[in-house]
Simulated scan of single mutants.
Amino acid sequence: MSTSPSVSEPVAALARHGVSVWLDDLSRELVRGGDLQRLVDRGVVGVTSNPTIFASALAKGDAYDEQMAELRASGASVLDAVTAITTTDVREACDVLAPVYEATDGVDGRVSLEVEPGLAHDTDGTLAQARSLFATVDRPNVMIKIPATVEGLPAITGVLADGISVNVTLIFSLDRYRAVLNAWLDGLERAVENGKDVSTIHSVASFFVSRVDGTVDGRLDADGSAEAKQLRGTAAVANARLAYQAFEEMLASTRWSDLAAAGAHPQRPLWASTGVKDTAYPDTKYVTDLVAPDTVNTMPLKTFDAVEDHGEVAGDTVRDTYTEASASLDAVERLGIGYADVVAGLEREGVEKFSASWGELLETVEKALAEAGR
């Protein structure tokens, strides 16, 4: 896909090196006000959303007032209203990104919509809601987001087997990422058995980045040793780079070669949580340190603006770094900061945070419905 003249050199360089730039934000104002189209013109080729993003969008402005009044008049429940609002935003974003979807044969031009966080440990509930959301949005370029919990894994397989594209979210650990890859392969194999055209099924695996440094750095600071200070800001990138190593190992497998022969597309690693939270680090750190082919980087607008303005994209910064990445995580472990404990805690916190945001979203919609009736 050729880039438009309005695409900055750093963003164009990411595309040349195989990185798809997605926006980690969505609101009705963004879509209907034309800002999403302007971002597409600047090189954004996909959108991700989550309950936190929707809760924030609903709390601002009056873009949802008209639909809220219609929902109130129809007697919609709070849950029905949330579904109607979020699927409308995703559907309209899908329409904006439809030309990208067509131009990239479905690889990009994607918009992600997440299942309810309260279903994170409910396989059957996740399956049912994923299918329902896909049908409600009714756009081929929607991706349904499913968390990579233990209970989420069989749901991922089942949804892919139905021919629905999936964004697997909340991945923190390498072991869980390998389990996600296996669930994805299982899903594609079942799709083949079900007679689905696997060339139409796409998937990304959202590996969270900055939150790892947020937790590990805090423990390194508590340690206070010279070695601990040197290790600050290394764990998250090392973790993501080793995830890419696992991705490459999958690409070399017989299971994948068989599926590729049937027309399947690889499940691309997606770097999520790429906004830098520690001002001691460059604001483009989790973009420029994770450049590799067949990846996605989903950025908050602030990070995208920073990359566009002063990002330095010199080439692949992931492959050939695996030995160094392993050494970094081993060094952190030697200081008594247990990797398994860190990633398990981050998954737990991730589900809790999205559940809390979902609760805020329900409260906001309930309040808006009540006010619409006045």
Rank of each mutant, 00 (worst) to 15 (best):
residue 242 L to V: 09
residue 344 A to F: 05
residue 292 A to Y: 04
residue 22 W to N: 08
residue 150 V to K: 00
residue 14 L to K: 07
residue 180 V to G: 01
residue 324 E to V: 13
residue 326 S to E: 14
residue 93 A to H: 03
residue 356 A to F: 03
residue 294 D to V: 06
residue 372 A to E: 10
residue 360 E to V: 09
residue 73 A to F: 01
residue 51 P to I: 04
residue 12 A to T: 13
residue 208 F to N: 04
residue 131 R to H: 05
residue 40 V to D: 06
residue 287 V to I: 15
residue 299 M to L: 15
residue 359 G to S: 14
residue 294 D to N: 15
residue 313 V to T: 04
residue 320 D to L: 07
residue 139 R to Q: 14
residue 368 A to R: 15
residue 179 A to I: 12
residue 340 A to F: 02
residue 84 A to R: 11
residue 187 G to C: 05
residue 197 D to H: 10
residue 254 T to S: 15
residue 115 V to E: 00
residue 188 L to H: 01
residue 259 L to V: 09
residue 131 R to D: 01
residue 244 Y to C: 13
residue 226 A to P: 03
residue 102 E to N: 04
residue 156 I to F: 03
residue 123 T to A: 14
residue 351 V to N: 02
residue 107 V to F: 00
residue 344 A to D: 15
residue 125 G to T: 11
residue 345 G to C: 07
residue 279 T to Q: 04
residue 118 G to E: 01
residue 32 R to L: 08
residue 58 L to F: 12
residue 25 D to L: 12
residue 357 S to E: 10
residue 186 D to R: 05
residue 210 S to G: 07
residue 73 A to I: 00
residue 241 R to S: 05
residue 305 D to I: 09
residue 87 T to S: 10
residue 144 I to R: 09
residue 150 V to W: 00
residue 193 E to L: 13
residue 47 V to W: 06
residue 355 S to N: 08
residue 60 K to I: 04
residue 297 N to G: 04
residue 108 D to Y: 12
residue 152 G to V: 11
residue 335 L to K: 06
residue 42 R to W: 08
residue 343 V to M: 14
residue 156 I to R: 01
residue 223 D to C: 10
residue 264 A to C: 11
residue 68 M to S: 00
residue 255 R to S: 11
residue 343 V to A: 03
residue 134 F to L: 07
residue 30 L to I: 09
residue 313 V to L: 05
residue 196 K to G: 00
residue 83 T to Y: 10
residue 251 L to M: 15
residue 115 V to A: 00
residue 18 G to L: 12
residue 356 A to C: 04
residue 309 D to A: 15
residue 44 V to C: 08
residue 3 T to I: 10
residue 339 Y to N: 07
residue 121 H to T: 12
residue 372 A to F: 08
residue 41 D to G: 11
residue 269 P to W: 00
residue 6 S to Q: 14
residue 217 D to N: 15
residue 114 E to K: 13
residue 56 S to L: 09
residue 302 K to N: 12
residue 348 R to K: 14
residue 1 M to A: 03
residue 215 T to S: 14
residue 176 R to N: 11
residue 263 G to E: 03
residue 20 S to G: 13
residue 150 V to R: 00
residue 188 L to W: 01
residue 111 V to A: 14
residue 215 T to A: 15
residue 39 L to R: 05
residue 126 T to I: 06
residue 4 S to M: 01
residue 127 L to A: 12
residue 80 D to F: 03
residue 295 T to A: 06
residue 250 M to S: 09
residue 44 V to R: 06
residue 121 H to W: 13
residue 60 K to S: 11
residue 45 V to R: 15
residue 301 L to E: 11
residue 218 G to D: 10
residue 178 R to K: 09
residue 263 G to Q: 09
residue 11 V to A: 11
residue 103 A to F: 02
residue 9 E to Y: 01
residue 117 P to K: 05
residue 270 L to P: 06
